[in-house]
Each structure stands twice: as structure tokens, then as C-alpha cells.
């Protein structure tokens, strides 16, 4: 799974920064028929988390109504220089993560 992450590298203390991520994933709904006339098995990214300095700051529970190649944008308050970790799991059990360092000062 390829993902494009957009987080500012630096921020002032207390600044609210936007985190954006675009993940390459088909988000198979389980309601679609394939070329063979059979239903394509469901496989969506169902859980997404953002940790900042090891603490969860944002989480999303995702359903098949989210478009293929899911895009998420959300915010976090910069308080200290720490790692921002984005973690997500799809229904094949594949877990992925992306890490960026946010420098505050």
C-alpha cells in the first residue's frame, strides 16, 4: 500500500497543523460483481489511527462508503517535537504505517 502523507515539518508551539493522507487501496465494498459474475470479496481499510508522541490523537472507523484510494484530512495541536505516526489496517489484516517528525519550536 502506497500512501502520500502531508504534514508540516515545523510548527510553532500550540499551532494547530493539518495532516493529510492519501492511501492507494481499492476499498472493495463487497457489493460489487467482478467480471466472472461473482461478488468481489469485501476488503476495506476499516481502521485508521494517528499517534503523536505515542498518544492517539485521532482515529477513524471506516465503512465501505469511503471512496477507493481513501483520503483523510484532520488536525492536531503541536506541543512538542515528536513523531507523528499514521497507522491503518485493512480486512486482509494488513497493517501499514507512515512516520513523520514534527519539529516544534
Amino acid at each position: 500500500m502506497v500512501a502520500m502523507v502531508n504534514i508540516p515539518e515545523t510548527a510553532a508551539p500550540g499551532e494547530i497543523v493539518e495532516v493529510k493522507i492519501l492511501i492507494s487501496h481499492p476499498m472493495e465494498t463487497g457489493f460489487r460483481t467482478g467480471a466472472d459474475g461473482k461478488l468481489v470479496p469485501r476488503n476495506i481499510i476499516h481502521d485508521f489511527r494517528c499517534l503523536y508522541g505515542g498518544t492517539e490523537v485521532f482515529r477513524a472507523e471506516i465503512f465501505p462508503a469511503i471512496a477507493a484510494n481513501p483520503f483523510l484530512g484532520f488536525f492536531l495541536r503541536a506541543v512538542e517535537t515528536a513523531e507523528v505516526e499514521l497507522l491503518w489496517t485493512d480486512e486482509t489484516g494488513e497493517e501499514h504505517s507512515e512516520r513523520r517528525t514534527l519539529t516544534v519550536g
Binding site: T29, Y52, V57, F58, A65, I66, R77, V79
Partner: peptide, 19 residues
């Protein structure tokens, strides 16, 4: 979708693309 926020989110706002 369900967005779960915390005080550390700073702003209760999120965006995505839906079907």
C-alpha cells in the same frame, strides 16, 4: 465513517471522500 477526536486534535474537523 466515524471520526474520533481528542483534545489533542486541536480542532474538531475532518475531511474525506465518500461514495
Amino acid at each position: 465513517i466515524r471520526f474520533r477526536f481528542t483534545p489533542a486534535s486541536g480542532r474538531a474537523a475532518a475531511e474525506t471522500r465518500i461514495r
